[in-house]
Design a protein around this nucleic acid. Structure first.
Lengths: 212, 212, 212, 212
DNA sequence: CATGAATGAGATTTCATTCAT
DNA sequence: GATGAATGAAATCTCATTCAT
């Protein structure tokens, strides 16, 4: 719990300029710029600040981009958590998750890739050492898993499915979300399958997988 | 069919030096080097040739890397196709697919990311124009989809499931594969879920999703 | 004499903040920071003041550093002058000079190097023009030479040596001091020659050089 | 002896471009450029090569400059050694040493300053670690001392002086050379003392210091 | 007066690409 | 064909200086 508190301290933007830089990075991520295609000068000009200013708040491009995407995850998971702990059925909330994923597809992909890539180059330039970075990564993951687990628990309580193994339930949720991405990036738009059909089919697949 | 023929001409390495360069690129991809982390000098030194030689066969780094990964897909899909048209039950073959995916996880991820990224920079440096490139991309996709569709058809014939919509079947296969990736990259190794359990659970989820 | 008065006006720190900045610079010089390694932000943070404040009193980094070292020379030569015009034999005073040099070795070296370096860059940033700067330099030199000459005159009066040429006497004094530096930076500490031996040998060398 | 061999390997320029870069650095040193005033672009343009070429041979500006000055010392000490082991009296050779010093005053000063400065910044950028660098430094020093000691031994043999302590003799030589620098940088040119007088006086001071 | 956030000119460094051999 | 030394455009990063508060 105070781990999350630490993340909050780490990533909550202290200044509007930092926020503007995070937004600039995330815009570029949404426009599918890769890490090396994102130039510091692009970030600062989009953020409407001078190039040198970036280095008042961060010590390298690597730090800017990594913190921007971690901030994004943290910020959005927070919003999602509120939605999931609010009103609505298990199924309705599943579609809210898909909405959310649709809005954040690119940063999520990007984060995954960034966190998985050959990191030597990146780690060397981060202010935190590799050990510290792994802890942060683990915290993010634990946080996300916690949100997913609590959500799946409500599905169980609503008798939507019967599977009681927490890990299988969680991974099945992740798989269903990825499955929806498959529609998004492939066929739903070419008319064969409507967006609604894809969503319902995805939901039912998850339920079927977790039942009996 | 002559589309495939064309790909074959395009990607089948004409010279052992080209093959060595493709292998070098794919090794680096497996070691999680990102596109910008792959240096031309690394490729040529790993391939055991001079740096200038790369430009005898390709006109840019972009061309080398893109062709290497497309070659990889083409080559492996070919092998997979033979497996899938050979002996064995639908379920057995599913596990062969997972084997294959496990062996080729990195290049597959990489290819996906590379083909999805902001391509202006890359396209500008490819010898084919964007139009031409999209055709190649579409051919690859159509080829892969064809293999998947024929495989799923055999599952229908063996009465493993009842779903008759080709697109839903295909995407459910892709989803199941991605779902197995979720285990690979997350939990199966930390002891909660064994590799075998993860595979069986994945298979059954796919069958459940496609039944009734 | 009114030249010295002018130096006094120029370098006697008007405000405790200026004094703190001079001290900060001199500390860094003693720690062997080169001119470009001394950052304005280091000076001000060591002096315990804000960065902008430096520019209330000086118009460039160059001016701060140059005035700090000139101030240092002026201040210390003043102290030395009092010692040399006080009680004690010529030989005793020589050892006091060596004491003093030992304490101020780094700033003295630094000043020498700074005043000798390619000065275009530095001059362009000084509030005084090159002409004016040369005058100040000449004043410093004349002042130092005056102190040395008066001291050597007492050696003559005490019949320590016979050389009557003022310039030869003065330069021999400087040479002896440099010679002691040779011991300080080389051998005296490695056990072969003790600090006391080095000092006595240096003194006797000077006397021998100036006799008959 | 094979230590010297190692230095030779390390500093003898392998390519004319490297030699041209060394010359460019040494020219700038002679023009009194400080380390930070020497820009890589100046070095390469003076050497008549492209900026990137510098990084084919060296991995940082620090390495270029440090190797240039070490090369210079090594090269010149070599020449000097030949002179000192050739024909001529002890006194004649002393004036040859002064000639040599006059020609190489700037690089010698510079080297001294460079090797004495706060080196953190510089060491971090050298390809050799601090340990290795200290060994090279020690080799240079041992080499120079060896040349000096052999020369002073001949003075003893020619009965120019009586002092038998090797370290005192060596340091007295160094002091005499520095003493001549005092004339060079101060008074000899303003007409009071001729260049010849300064040299003779310096020689006699050294002999007097080392006699009886 | 005092401050420190903001700036951008200018430095170092990288690496895809060329081309003489 | 094959090579790798040479290149320079373009990137990251530093830090003296300004100026609104």
């Amino acid at each position: 719990m105070n781990q999350i508190k630490e993340m909050e301290d780490l990533f909550y933007p202290k200044s509007p300029k930092v926020k503007a830089m995070y937004d600039a990075v995330l815009d570029m991520v949404n426009e599918r710029y890769s890490f090396s295609q994102i130039k510091v000068s692009d970030i600062t000009s989009r953020a409407g600040i001078g190039k040198g200013t970036a280095y008042e708040y961060f010590s390298s491009k690597e730090e800017i981009v990594v913190k921007a995407v971690l901030y994004n995850i943290y910020y959005n998971m927070h919003r999602m958590e509120r939605v999931l702990s609010g009103e609505g059925s298990f199924e309705e909330k599943f579609y809210r998750i898909l909405d959310f994923m649709e809005d954040n597809m690119e940063p999520l992909r990007y984060t995954t890739e960034l966190l998985r890539g050959k990191c030597e180059t990146i780690h060397k330039k981060l202010p935190m050492d590799e050990e510290r970075f792994k802890i942060v990564q683990a915290q993010v993951k634990a946080y996300v898993n916690g949100v997913a687990d609590r959500y799946m628990e409500t599905g169980m309580q609503e008798s939507c499915f019967t599977q009681s193994n927490v890990i299988l339930r969680r991974n099945t949720l992740y798989t269903a979300i990825l499955g929806y991405f498959v529609y998004l990036t492939n066929d739903y738009y070419d008319g064969d399958i409507s967006r609604e059909e894809a969503r319902r089919f995805t939901y039912q697949g998850m339920i079927a997988t977790l039942s009996k």
